[in-house]
């Protein structure tokens, strides 16, 4: 038995299916949904309700993770619109972007060996973050346009942002 199979993540949160959202509002809705459906609320309920509550909460958590992150949200939204952002099927990417990535990674490797390691890594992190923010703003305009070419551009942006996120993650894991 599965709860609310028909609902997508946006509907589950009572939000319009759109890229733009207010993250503070999203967090409030998340807590409200958790308050209603968390298994702790059903600890003495009949077994079918306990199971449903667990499934619902798992779905609410997955939805929140997806919606709060612009890249995951964009990918999910494109998926709903029938655009696959899968990496494996198509590896072609903008050469200029790839060059920039190589340069960023080299800079990171250098920073690791440098004398001023922490400060250099921090400035790299900020640079990647700024780039993510710029691309996020671009994504917003593409989604607002709601046309086939705009979706293609959004898809390319999402894939580039995944590269950048991976780099942020690697920087985060350094220590």
């Amino acid at each position: 038995m599965q709860a609310d199979l028909g609902k997508n993540y946006f509907e589950l949160f009572g939000l319009p299916v759109a890229f733009d959202l207010d993250s503070a509002d999203l967090a409030v809705r998340y807590r409200e949904l958790q308050r209603r459906f968390h298994p702790d609320r059903f600890a003495s309920a009949p077994a079918p309700e306990r199971r449903l509550s667990m499934q619902m909460t798992a779905q609410i958590n997955a939805a929140f993770q997806t919606l709060k992150d612009p890249v995951a949200r964009a990918r999910y939204l494109l998926g709903l619109q029938g655009v696959d952002t899968g990496q494996e099927t198509d590896t072609a990417m903008n050469p200029a972007f790839l060059m920039e990535q190589m340069e960023l990674r080299e800079a990171l490797a250098e920073a690791m060996l440098g004398t001023d390691r922490d400060r250099q890594i921090e400035s790299l992190r900020q640079r990647v973050n700024t780039e993510l923010e710029v691309k996020s703003a671009l994504l917003r305009t593409h989604f607002a346009e709601n046309s086939e070419p705009a979706r293609r551009q959004a898809r390319n942006l999402v894939r580039e942002m995944q590269f950048l996120q991976k780099l942020t993650h690697e920087i985060q894991e350094l220590d």
Binding site: M1, A3, D4, L12, R36, E49, L52, S53
Partner: peptide, 10 residues
């Protein structure tokens, strides 16, 4: 019954 109660709650 459980599923309907959950749906209503949602």
């Amino acid at each position: 019954f459980a599923a309907r109660r959950m749906d209503a709650s949602l």
